[in-house]
């Protein structure tokens, strides 16, 4: 079912084992990630979904090598992810293209670091940009592109160094809904073509279902794994699937899990019953009447 099954000598196996991350000094330390264990199997597409501030980005940053674990281990193919590496390509929520480089030079950046010569770099970058339908824009500067195109270049740039895993931190969060759907399809296409593991952070339920083999739901801060939901919908997936019973069942399940956590994350004002206070009728004087 997953890509892992038919990929020989697969690499890109991420293993997170009893991870804890604390920020700040001992006395005032805040725990962002609390005892998380999870994995991404080679070639698998895994999403982590949770309310904002639940530590899902922190978890991704540990896998990327930007943040050190306070306890526990994070490994890729048996090696600790203690510093950033081109083995783990990353796509950020903010646009992270280098504004002073053309689209093609952005894609070439990682290859240049590897010491590849200019001709090969250009060839490789043009091939990848062609796959993403961006060849016409190879000489543009990032500021001349739309948001969706920037993120596509960002994905292509991350893939250029042939990483074993792609780490994506809400990459489509800043895009409008239509563009996001298109981007999800492009990403699925690219993923199936490159057959690498993907760890995808999102707070969009539909996005996580559409893209993933498995979805982890995280709790409000400090972040724990609350549930692990396999998505057994067949591939290739199409937007029409959003109305099939299995999809709706998963969506309902995820929504229930997340709503609970979102309410917790918003604090004590809204209890489990949630929006209870809002059924108070407000007369023509509006809010003034209540005070």
């Amino acid at each position: 079912m997953t890509q892992a099954d038919d990929k020989p000598n697969a690499t890109g196996h991420i293993l997170v084992d009893h991870l804890r991350v604390r920020f700040g000094s001992k006395a005032a330390a805040v725990e962002a990630v609390s005892d998380v264990s999870m994995e991404v199997k080679p070639g698998e597409f895994v999403s982590i979904i949770g309310p904002s501030g639940c530590g899902k980005s922190t978890l991704l940053n540990v896998v990327a090598g930007f943040v050190k674990p306070s306890e526990g281990t994070v490994t890729m193919d048996g090696k600790a992810t203690d510093k950033p590496s081109a083995d783990r390509g990353m796509v950020f929520q903010q646009y992270s293209l280098f504004p002073w480089l053309s689209v093609r030079k952005n894609v070439e950046f990682g290859l240049k670091q590897k010491g590849m010569d200019a001709n090969h770099r250009e060839e490789a970058a043009r091939t990848l940009l062609g796959l993403a339908g961006l060849l016409a824009f190879e000489n543009h500067y990032p500021d001349q592109l739309s948001g969706g195109m920037k993120q596509r270049v960002g994905i292509v740039r991350a893939l250029a160094t042939s990483p074993q895993v792609l780490l994506m931190d809400e990459p489509f969060g800043a895009l409008d809904a239509q563009t996001r759907v298109v981007m999800q399809q492009i990403l699925t296409n690219m993923w199936q073509r490159f057959r690498i593991s993907v760890l995808f952070i999102t707070h969009d339920i539909d996005e996580s279902i559409f893209l993933s083999d498995r979805v982890y739901v995280m709790t409000a801060r400090p972040g724990r794994i609350k549930a692990e939901i396999p998505i057994l919908l067949p591939r290739p997936r199409t937007p029409d699937m959003a109305s099939c019973p299995e999809y709706l069942r998963i969506k309902q399940q995820l929504r229930d899990l997340i709503t609970e956590e979102s309410l917790k994350a918003m604090g004590g004002e809204l209890k489990d019953s949630g929006l209870a206070g809002f059924d108070v009728e407000v007369g023509p004087k509006g809010v003034a009447e209540l005070i």
Binding site: G130, L131, A132, G133, L134, L135, A136, F137, E138, N139, H140, Y141, Q144, L145, S146, G148, M149, T179, V182, Q185, I186, N189, R193
Partner: peptide, 25 residues
């Protein structure tokens, strides 16, 4: 800065997988 030549090249076979760019040159 749009390169008309490059734009033509990309209209070709590369679109097999890729959707149309949202912004036309």
């Amino acid at each position: 800065r749009v390169d008309p030549q490059a734009a033509e090249v990309a209209q070709g076979p590369s679109l097999a997988l890729a959707p149309k760019p949202e912004v036309t040159p």
